[in-house]
Simulated scan of single mutants.
Amino acid sequence: MLFGKNKNKFYFNPGNRDTGVDENYVQEEVSKIDEDDVEVVLKNEENIDKKFSGSNGLSKYMELGRIMMSMLKDVKKGEYKNIPWFTIATIVLALLYVLNPMDIIPDFIPGIGYIDDIAVLSIGVGWIESDLHRYLDWRLEHEKGI
């Protein structure tokens, strides 16, 4: 198993915020994510990056996508460990949604086509924010050779 034994553990902690999201629904959707979905995201890194690269206003989301993609790669290589499956699945779900051109608001609609992509990415980041911060801290330490 590529991502270790954490797959069956469910970690959902949106903090003190009321997200209005049914946790049972989220758990059900997360349980549908498998390693093939992770591979689809990793193989489409360039397409996901291109989606947000067209606008300066989306650069923040492009950087978040790159961080999430980097986390997936480091987990796959076995360099970054002890990450809950929920975090991996959340990243995969968010990036698969971004990759899909025909979502709730089709991307070809000028001006508003990316609103739903940004919303899904933002909600996902909100759910896994502490894991992203731990990853970034780890990456800084890893790059320094500490």
Rank of each mutant, 00 (worst) to 15 (best):
M1L: 09
M1R: 05
K5H: 15
N6M: 13
N8F: 14
F12E: 03
P14M: 03
P14I: 01
P14F: 08
P14T: 00
D18G: 05
E23W: 06
N24K: 10
Q27D: 01
E28P: 00
V30A: 06
K32D: 02
D34E: 10
E35A: 00
E35Q: 01
D36N: 12
D36T: 08
E39A: 09
E39Y: 06
V40F: 13
V40Y: 12
V41W: 06
V41P: 05
L42W: 06
L42Q: 03
K43S: 09
K43Y: 04
N44P: 06
D49A: 11
S55H: 06
N56G: 08
K60L: 09
K60N: 13
K60M: 10
M62N: 14
L64R: 12
G65R: 09
G65D: 03
R66V: 12
R66K: 15
I67W: 02
I67C: 01
M68W: 07
M68C: 12
M69P: 08
L72T: 08
D74G: 00
G78C: 04
G78N: 02
Y80I: 07
F86Q: 08
T87V: 05
I88C: 06
I88D: 03
T90C: 13
V92T: 13
L93E: 07
L93Y: 11
L93C: 11
A94K: 14
L95T: 03
L96T: 03
L99A: 05
L99Q: 11
N100Y: 02
N100S: 03
N100E: 08
P101A: 02
D103W: 13
D107F: 10
P110V: 08
P110F: 06
I115V: 15
D117Y: 07
I118R: 07
V125W: 15
V125K: 15
W127E: 05
I128N: 04
E129Y: 13
L132H: 04
R134I: 00
L136A: 04
L136E: 14
R139F: 07
R139G: 09
H142Y: 15
H142N: 14
E143Q: 14
E143M: 13
K144H: 12
